[in-house]
Simulated scan of single mutants.
Amino acid sequence: MKNRQQGLTLMSFIVVLAVLGFFGYIAAKLWGPYYEFTNVKRAMDAVAGEAGSSNKSLPQLQNNLQKNFDVGYVESIDARIAKMDKEKFVIEYESRTGFVYNIDFVIKFNYAVALQ
């Protein structure tokens, strides 16, 4: 009976590491925009949850949102892009993140929250 060895060779191990490194690099590049979006959602929820937010004008809501952005370290988005749609406070924006050379990731974010 022959003893057959099983497992990864050095070359296949290097290939596996390269693939994992590639996807890890992508995840590291996309982490920032998605983390910032969670802060945008948190700020939108805070502004919409304030008492009487449905009675405020759009500039007042945008001003409150900008204050929450400043506290939540949201730096690449201006609160003036937020709009009102009936009884909802809506923000839509794109985030462009460089990947390698002339290749970018473009991510579209959209979030709407009901005013109280």
Score class of each variant (00 low, 15 high):
Asp78Thr: 06
Gln66Ser: 14
Asn68Cys: 08
Tyr25Leu: 10
Ala51Val: 09
Gly49Met: 11
Leu17Trp: 05
Gly98Pro: 13
Asp104Asn: 11
Gly24Glu: 03
Val71Arg: 12
Ser53Tyr: 04
Pro33Tyr: 04
Ala18Tyr: 04
Asp104Phe: 06
Ile107Asn: 05
Lys88Glu: 00
Ile81Thr: 07
Glu50Met: 15
Gly21Arg: 08
Gly32Tyr: 07
Val47Leu: 15
Asn63Ala: 04
Asn63Arg: 01
Pro33Met: 08
Ser54Tyr: 02
Lys88Phe: 04
Lys41Phe: 00
Leu17Arg: 14
Asn64Glu: 07
Ala79Pro: 03
Asp78Asn: 03
Thr97Tyr: 05
Gly72Met: 09
Arg42Tyr: 14
Val100Leu: 15
Phe22Arg: 06
Ala46Gln: 09
Phe37Glu: 00
Asn39Gln: 11
Val71Glu: 08
Ser53Gly: 04
Lys67Thr: 01
Asn63Gly: 05
Gly32Ser: 09
Phe13Gln: 05
Lys88Thr: 00
Phe105Met: 05
Ala79Ile: 00
Arg42His: 15
Pro33Trp: 00
Leu30Pro: 11
Ser53Phe: 02
Phe22Lys: 14
Ser54Ala: 13
Val15Gly: 15
Thr38Asn: 12
Phe37Trp: 01
Thr97Leu: 07
Glu50Trp: 08
Asn102Thr: 10
Asn102Leu: 09
Pro59Phe: 11
Ser53Val: 06
Gly24Phe: 04
Met84Cys: 08
Phe13Ser: 10
Phe105Pro: 13
Val90Gly: 08
Leu10Phe: 10
Ala51Pro: 11
Gly21Ser: 09
Leu20Gly: 14
Gly72Gln: 12
Lys41Thr: 04
Asn63Gln: 02
Pro33Phe: 03
Lys86Gln: 05
Val47His: 13
Phe37Lys: 02
Ala79Tyr: 02
Leu61Val: 01
Val90Ser: 07
Phe22Gln: 06
Phe89Glu: 00
Arg96Leu: 09
Ala18Ile: 11
Val19Arg: 15
Arg96Val: 07
Val100Thr: 15
Lys88Gly: 01
Phe99Cys: 10
Ala51Ser: 10
Ala46Asp: 07
Phe99Val: 02
Tyr93Ser: 05
Phe89Thr: 00
Phe37Ala: 05
Lys67Ile: 03
Tyr34Arg: 12
Leu65Gln: 10
Ala79Lys: 01
Ser57Asn: 08
Glu75Ala: 15
Leu65Cys: 15
Ala82Trp: 03
Ala48Val: 03
Met84Gln: 06
Ser57Thr: 11
Glu36Ala: 07
Met84Ser: 02
Ala82Thr: 05
Ile14Asp: 03
Gly72Pro: 11
Asn68Lys: 13
Glu92Ala: 12
Met44Leu: 13
Gln66His: 10
Val90His: 07
Thr38Met: 12
Phe22Ser: 14
Met84Ala: 01
Phe105Ile: 03
Tyr93Leu: 05
Arg96Lys: 14
Tyr34Leu: 09
Val16Arg: 08
Asn55Gly: 15
Phe22Glu: 02
Leu61Ala: 01
Ala82Lys: 05
Ile14Gly: 09
Asp45Ala: 14
Lys67Val: 06
Gly98Val: 06
Ala51Met: 11
Glu75Val: 12
Ala46Leu: 13
Gly52Cys: 04
Met44Ala: 07
Asp78Cys: 02
Arg42Cys: 15
Ile91Gln: 01
Glu50Tyr: 09
Ile91Cys: 04
Met11Trp: 08
Ala27Pro: 06
Val100Gly: 15
